[in-house]
Amino acid sequence: VHELREVVTAAVLGANAGSSMSVSIVSFGYKYGLPVGMDVVLDVRFIPNPFFISELRPLTGTDPRVHEYVMAQPESQGFIDEVGRLLDFLIPLYQREGKSYLTVGLGCTGGRHRSPVLARELMKRLDSAGFASTVRDNDIAR
Rank of each mutant, 00 (worst) to 15 (best):
V44I: 01
M71W: 09
S100H: 13
K124C: 02
P64T: 05
Q73M: 12
Q73H: 15
T109H: 06
L122D: 09
N49T: 11
L106R: 06
Y94A: 15
R114H: 03
G107S: 07
R120W: 01
G84P: 03
M123E: 13
L102N: 10
E68V: 01
L102V: 09
Q73D: 05
V44G: 02
P74D: 04
L126S: 05
T60R: 10
R114G: 11
I91V: 15
E55A: 08
L126Y: 05
A72D: 13
H113Y: 03
M38F: 00
S115D: 07
Q95K: 14
V40H: 11
R114T: 14
G111I: 08
T60E: 06
R96F: 13
T60L: 08
G61D: 04
N49D: 15
L102I: 12
G78K: 09
D63C: 00
S76E: 02
R120T: 00
K99H: 15
K124Y: 04
D63M: 05
G105S: 10
Y69F: 13
E82V: 05
E121R: 15
L90W: 12
L87N: 04
N49L: 14
E97T: 05
I80L: 11
F89L: 15
R96S: 14
L59N: 00
P35H: 08
V117M: 00
V36L: 15
G111R: 14
G61I: 07
I91C: 10
L126N: 06
S100M: 03
V41L: 07
V66A: 11
L93D: 06
Y101N: 14
T103P: 07
V66I: 00
P64W: 01
R65L: 06
A119Q: 12
S54P: 13
R114Y: 10
L102G: 09
G107I: 01
P50C: 07
S54T: 15
S54Y: 04
G105A: 11
I47P: 04
V44P: 12
D39A: 08
D81V: 08
L122M: 12
E68P: 02
S54E: 09
L106P: 09
V66R: 01
G84A: 09
T103I: 15
G110I: 06
R65T: 04
N49M: 05
L87D: 08
V66F: 07
Y101C: 06
R65S: 04
G84C: 03
R112L: 01
R96M: 13
A72R: 01
